[in-house]
Amino acid sequence: MVLAPGARRFLCGALALPCAVAVASFGELSGGALLVVAATGLLVAGTGVAARAGEVAPAVGRRGLPWAAWLVAAAGWELVTLLHDDLPSVSDLADPLLSHPAARATATVLWLAAGAWLVTRPRGPVTP
């Protein structure tokens, strides 16, 4: 089943609200919140994969170097914090900001919006 970009955006938006409400109501680090976020993330990612099934991915080239650098830096930070208990991880730094349910719900919607943008972005150069 192939969805139009507008339908994919609507589907991702329709998934965002119940997910944000569940995350806000279940509370921090709960199994219910983890399950809802994982299921919603898989649905959003599945929408993108289904829309691009059978396509050949274009070569990334040098455009991917900044993203690779960020990924290596983030993984390195998490590894160092895993080895040294006195250093805070990204999760530890974000905990005070996400302690309020409304902040968690907002962060969840923003996370889903970023995922929806990734799965619905144009496949090639946009011509005016």
Rank of each mutant, 00 (worst) to 15 (best):
E78D: 06
L29V: 15
G41P: 08
A57H: 14
A51E: 08
V90I: 07
P128I: 12
A53F: 12
V37L: 15
R123C: 09
L15R: 03
W77D: 05
V109E: 07
T106Q: 14
V72R: 00
T127L: 15
S89I: 03
V49A: 12
E78I: 01
D85H: 11
P5W: 05
L110N: 07
R123A: 13
R62F: 06
F26Q: 11
A51L: 06
L87Q: 04
A39I: 07
G27F: 01
D85F: 07
L3Q: 05
T120R: 02
V72C: 02
G27P: 01
W67F: 08
T47N: 01
F26C: 13
A116M: 00
L35C: 15
A33C: 12
D95E: 15
P125H: 15
G64A: 05
A20V: 09
L110I: 09
T120V: 05
V80N: 04
A57D: 14
P96T: 03
A38L: 13
L65W: 09
A33R: 05
D85W: 09
L15K: 06
C12T: 10
A68W: 00
T40R: 05
V37G: 10
A7D: 12
A33E: 11
P96C: 02
D95S: 14
L35M: 14
R8G: 07
V56D: 11
C12G: 06
G31F: 13
A20L: 12
A24W: 06
A116P: 01
C12E: 03
R121P: 02
A113M: 12
R62L: 13
D86G: 04
L97I: 14
C19L: 14
R63Y: 11
A74K: 01
R123L: 11
L118N: 00
G27Y: 01
A50H: 14
A57G: 11
V37K: 11
R62E: 13
V49D: 13
W70T: 10
D86E: 15
A68F: 04
D92K: 04
W111L: 15
S25P: 05
V44M: 01
A38W: 07
R121F: 02
A38E: 11
G61V: 02
H84W: 14
L42D: 08
F10N: 10
A45H: 08
A116Q: 00
S91V: 10
A50F: 13
A14G: 02
H84T: 14
V119E: 00
G46I: 08
L43C: 09
V23C: 13
A50I: 13
G31W: 10
L29W: 12
V119P: 05
R52P: 10
V72S: 03
A59H: 01
A53H: 15
F10E: 14
V109S: 09
L17A: 15
A102D: 05
C12N: 04
A103E: 15
G27T: 04
L87P: 05
A39Q: 08
L79V: 11
P18M: 12
A20T: 10
V90G: 00
A38R: 04
S30H: 07
P101N: 06
L65P: 12
F26P: 05
A116N: 00
D92S: 05
P88W: 03
A74V: 02
G27E: 03
L15Y: 06
A39N: 09
C12S: 03
C19K: 09
L29M: 15
A16K: 01
